[in-house]
Design a protein around this nucleic acid. Structure first.
Lengths: 218, 218
DNA sequence: TAAAAATAATGATATAAATCATATTTGTAT
DNA sequence: ATACAAATATGATTTATATCATTATTTTTA
């Protein structure tokens, strides 16, 4: 059972939503939905991890969001022409609850608390999107990306510094909106400053405080 | 009477909202609300024009949105710590309807169609915010900014090319996220290519088609 | 275990845009 | 009209980051 629904919808509505939703499995590297497709509903990540990629057509793709358990996916396809503007790709084998759009709409209009939760969710997404638009030197942006990776993925169970999931350098560059080489160089710099520790592909976050200062532009 | 409310709220609720709202006047150049202040409600621009400025603290401020009649202002203060993340400044003498947050919330929870409209509004804002985050060469960004100015402000009554409101070069640079000098040079370039025409401070849009191609990255 | 492929790293160079400097035009008040 | 301030414009230089080129390391597979 999904916690968001349970919290904000009546018992009767929860049953109704679940009855009309389906659980889908997507294995690592596979697409959950793709930019350009019709928005048929909304996804909630029950298990696994995913990246949301803006395929701009021109230039290089950009990772605009990372998602983990309980995160909502596909809401960027809402409104306008009801097509996804972004693609979602599973980073690990994942399991999602898919709620068809008409069921979502019915639930939205009949459960004011759920509606309000969704509005607040969009409001947060908007704030975050705007925050990311701030123009900062690339080192600060990369600090922000690393912090976001920590927020979404957290540390490994048996470690207090190692990220539980390390994106490839290519993906980290994509999330930072920069080039691979620039990302690698900047990681090396942060490594020298003991803010992070590079261990092969894996990244350890050593100094969260400094990371926060950096991402805030200091 | 406000058209959005009228369209999506029951007559009884319209009266209730208007009874608890107030109309405020802000003269050109003055602040409607400022970043950091508590979000006390939502504004609807009844008359006039405004700019929404993200004050990043670090670096230079950035215009993230322009607003004209019927546009909603202040929704970026929703959620989280309920503080405005941006400032809104009147570009002309303006008149706004201010709906206190508790009245908005009550209306939201009791008028499903209004709630849905608001959700769609946030969804559009999110799409737009993400679209702007696309990294393009500055000329393309500036084309996008000019197009947005046209969308929001339109042409002067007696002209089919002259923008009804021309932001200062400084403000245009701020909206494009670039420097004054770069903006001026790029405008000169677009002027030479007969895509726009510079007439003192005023800007004429001569070739909307080319502007659209540019803003799309072509 | 070796070879191949993929990923990560580093050095050299090019370039778009920022910054600094200065001139020109436009608007406003005396 | 004249002086002053503000806004607009343009030239020269610097800088951050992209791009190109090459090497090193890790992972996969044969």
């Amino acid at each position: 059972m999904n916690s968001v629904l349970q919290k904000f919808c009546s018992e009767h509505w929860c049953e109704f939503i679940l009855f009309h939703s389906k659980t889908i499995s997507v294995s690592a590297g596979n697409s959950i939905f793709s930019a350009g497709e019709d928005t048929l509903g909304i996804h909630i990540l029950n298990k696994g991890k995913a990246k949301v990629v803006a395929c701009t057509g021109i230039g290089t793709d950009r990772i605009i969001r990372l998602a983990a358990e309980d995160d909502i996916l596909g809401h960027r396809g809402f409104g306008g022409p009801w097509k996804y503007t972004v693609s979602a790709i599973a980073l690990e084998d994942s399991e999602l609850l898919f709620i068809p759009i008409d069921i979502f709409n019915a639930a939205f209009k009949s459960n004011p608390d759920f509606a309000y939760y969704m509005l607040m969710f969009f409001a947060e997404e908007l704030r975050e999107s705007e925050r990311l638009a701030t123009q900062l030197p690339i080192k600060n942006v990369i600090a922000s990306v690393l912090y976001n990776n920590l927020q979404v993925f957290g540390f490994e169970k048996d470690s207090s510094t190692k990220l539980s999931h390390t994106l490839s350098r290519k993906d980290l560059a994509s999330q930072a909106g920069t080039r691979y080489e620039t990302l690698v160089r900047t990681l090396a710099e942060l490594n020298n400053e003991n803010i992070i520790k590079l261990e092969g592909k894996a990244i350890h976050i050593l100094d969260i405080e400094k990371l926060v200062l950096l991402k805030e532009g200091n």
